[in-house]
């Protein structure tokens, strides 16, 4: 297996950063609760690409191990988040996140 060069690494890192930024935009601008969580999943994907790229670069399995944990956290987050979405939807009959803004100063 040949070594990965710095330039190749930086390309993957740039792609991860772009995906992360796109997820961030979605997280902040979408009003649908499901879409907000979907946006966070995009950010997870960006981070996963970064971690795997580093694992490839350093030729060890730590990055991949981190991705395993990342996936389990993402799965846990998704199950809880979607359960919450269902709960909140039952209360207000809407997915609009702005319906839930009582915690204000």
């Amino acid at each position: 297996m040949e070594l990965m060069t710095n330039a190749a690494l930086y390309q993957y890192l740039a792609l991860g950063a772009v995906l992360f930024a796109i997820g961030l935009v979605g997280f902040m601008s979408r009003r649908n609760m499901i879409m907000i969580f979907l946006s966070t999943e995009i950010m997870f994907q960006g981070v996963a690409i970064n971690l795997i790229a580093f694992a490839r670069y350093h030729l060890n399995a730590d990055g991949q191990s981190f991705v395993i944990f990342l996936l389990s956290v993402a799965a846990a987050e998704a199950s809880l988040a979607l359960a919450l979405v269902v709960l909140l939807y039952r209360r207000r009959q809407t997915l609009n996140i702005d319906a839930w803004s009582e915690m204000q100063g």
């Binding site: 997280f27 839930w100 803004s101 009582e102 915690m103 100063g105």
Partner: peptide, 17 residues
């Protein structure tokens, strides 16, 4: 600075980022 605590998730995200 009380108005910054709007209770809306996205503003907290914006502030953090």
């Amino acid at each position: 600075i009380k108005p910054t605590e709007s209770g809306r998730l996205r503003y907290y995200g914006i502030g953090m980022v």
